[in-house]
Each structure stands twice: as C-alpha cells, then as structure tokens.
Design a protein around this nucleic acid. Structure first.
Lengths: 200, 200
DNA sequence: CTATAATGTGAGTGAATATTCACTTACCGG
DNA sequence: CCGGTAAGTGAATATTCACTCACATTATAG
C-alpha cells in the first residue's frame, strides 16, 4: 500500500490530475485519456479519481472551464492595453500560440469530435468558447478598421475566421514538424501573409 | 430472416458500406462509427460486415485509399490544364471544398486523432496524404512564383500550409454555420484575402 | 439440377472501460 | 489522543465494442 502524498491543498491535487490528463491527451489524444491511464500517470488507483471528480466527463468540463478562464484574462488584457490595433493582432496570435504550446491538450479537446459529439453540454461549452473567441476577434478587427489600419470593405466575420484559422494552421504545421520549429516563427510568417491581404 | 439484396457486384456492396460509414462519421464523428451502428445503417447484422472487410480498421483504410484516389486525379487534372496559376489556385480550393462538401466524413477521418493515434499504419497513411497535398500545393505555388504572379520572396512551404489552412477554415466556418452558407462563397472571400497577401 | 461462391444471421466471447462500494490509511484540529 | 475528513485501495460490475463461428440462404454457372 503506497503512502499517500498529503500536504497538498485540494486545488493542487486537482491541478496534478489536470496536468496529467492534459499530458495524456497531448500524447495519446482524447481517446487515449482513459481512467486507467490517468490513474497510472497521476500515481493512484483508478477509483481514486472519483474522490476529486464526479466523472471523467466532469474532469474534462472542469479543464475547459478553468484553463480557458486564465487564457481569457490574458487576451482581454492585450486588447485593452495595446493601442496599435495591428500590433494587437500580432500580440494576440503570439498569446494564443504560446498558450497552446503550453497546453496542447486543450487544443485537442476543442478540436476533437470525440468530445464534441455525443455530449450536448460539452458541445455547447466548446461552441461557446469558439464563438466567444470569434466575437472577440471581430471586435479587435473592427477596431482596426475604424483606425483605418485594415481595409474598410473587409468582411469582419471572414477576417476573424481567417485569423482563427491561422492559429489552427500554425499549430498543425508545428505538429507536423514534430514541434521542432518554434511556433512563434511559423506564426509570424503566416501573420505577415495574412496582414498583407487585409491591411488598408 | 430478411431477404438479401443481390444483383450487386462486390464493388457496389462495398460502396454501400462506405457510403453508410461516411454518413455515420459525418453525423456522429469517427468515434460514432461502431460496427453495430454501421450494420443498422447498411441494413444487415454486425457480423455481415466481415464478409466485406477484414476489420473495421480495414474499412477505414480502404476508404482512405479509394475515395482519395478519385480526388487526387481531379487535382492533378486541374493543375495540368489550367494555364493561369492564380486561376489554378482558385480552381483547386473549389475542388477541395466541393469534394469535402460531398464527403465530409473524409475530412473528419483525416483530422481525427482517434484514428490518427494508436494505429501506426493508418497514421502513416494519413501523414502521407497530407504531405502529398502539401507537396502538390508547393509545386503549384512555385509555378505561380515563376510566372511572377506571386511574390518572389514568398516562403513556399508557409504559403502552402496557409492555403491548406484556408480549406480547414472554410470547412469549420461552414460547420459552425450549420452548413447553411455555401462553401464556395466562404472560400472565395477567404481566398481573396489570401491572394492579396501573397500575390506579386 | 446441382455445386459453388457470395452474402447474411444469431449467438456468443473476450477485452476495454467507466463507475461503485466497502474498506483502510494518514493527517489535523480540538 | 480522539474523531472527523480527505485521500487512496482492491475488488466487483455493467456496458460497449470489435470480432468469430457454425449455420442458412440466394444467385449463378456449368
């Protein structure tokens, strides 16, 4: 019987579990996140998970709520503090990507139809996250148009989707290249091409 | 005991199964493709599947090989026959998207880490497909650069990934909008923004 | 008409998986 | 030191899933 590690607040234990879960998802995909594997990674027995989370689904839901909350605060801050709206777009893409670099598992959760389909509540949660991001990006882009930095006749929604697509593209490229190329380098080239196409 | 439908070549029966499989994947995701569900959709009993395919994995592999072979021929044809290389890019994105519009399930297979992970052979197959596409796009883009239609200093690989990302973006947008907006409309706006950024 | 090959059926099996439960262990406050 | 509580354990369970196998049916070619 292994000695339990105590002296940890409940939060940090949950944190351990989340860290392990994201690591597994990153390496083995959402499908690879099984309770057995998670338990092994954390270092307890399967049933112990249920001391911390009601269910596996609950764990994923918790991850989405909490990790993304953090990211969200950063985004809002950048948008508020950066005067130059083109510079803001640059900052935003770096922020998105350094976040995904840190938590690649999150990306997989959001873009996985494993979770997306079959659980209406999680599906709604993920849809909500994406549409929040799009709304946010539309706001930034509209601001840039108002500042005459971007073309006046730009379709704001398409431009926002296109920007979001850059993040996906950079991330995919990074994955294909076995993460050997720095994400920041990839994204800056993509962003340059993007900006050439949309700026005034 | 239900009467069997015969008078069908093995090919067309396989075709029925593939059609059903892609329909299920489209609606329920790759995870949703279970042998039970597939059998129900096709109209036979689970075990009957194994008269046509060695395994479920074999079915997916067959889909990747065959459906994509078709697509591939179209792509090559467009590239050869279209003189104007910018026009070729336009044609290509339409072709990609009308293909995905017809077989959305294929898209989900390729972008699913459910299949991607855990089966090395399928993983290699999908990797191969993607890199073939990238190589192809790089060739088209390089040709356009040589024709002085695109910027001479363009990073061809990044431009190709960006283009591929547009397809993903258009498809996602289409999905989010519940497929109510025609894919062609979405893609032409995205492509315009893209071309503005890369053309000479 | 009959042999054969293709296709379908029904019942079952074993493996993987999430979850429950009764229990034990370790720590902490009073 | 005692009682409560948070955390962990080990065994069991129900479900889902891909897949197998012996048997049945149908179409077609000779």
């Amino acid at each position: 019987m292994k000695k339990a590690v105590f002296f940890q607040t409940p939060e940090s234990r949950k944190g351990d579990i989340i860290t392990s879960a994201l690591k597994i998802i990153d390496q083995k995909g959402v499908k690879g996140l099984t309770v057995a594997r998670l338990a092994q990674e954390v270092g307890f027995v399967e049933s112990a998970l249920y001391r911390h989370f009601k269910s596996k689904r609950d764990l994923v839901s918790f991850i989405l709520d909490n990790i993304l909350q953090d990211a969200w605060n950063y985004l809002a801050e950048v948008e508020e503090k950066t005067e130059d709206s083109l510079e803001a777009l640059k900052q935003l893409i770096y922020l998105f990507l350094s976040f995904l670099e840190q938590f690649p598992g999150i990306f997989k959760i959001i873009y996985s139809d494993e979770i997306y389909l079959g659980d209406e509540e999680l599906q709604d949660k993920i849809d909500g996250i994406i549409s929040e991001i799009v709304v946010f990006l539309k706001k930034v882009i509209q601001k840039a148009i108002n500042q005459k930095k971007l073309k006046a006749d730009l379709d704001v929604t398409v431009a926002a989707m296109h920007f979001l697509g850059l993040i996906y593209t950079a991330f995919s490229y990074w994955t294909i290249k076995k993460r050997r190329v720095p994400l920041k380098k990839i994204s800056s080239e993509l962003l340059d091409q993007y900006l050439e196409g949309v700026k005034a």
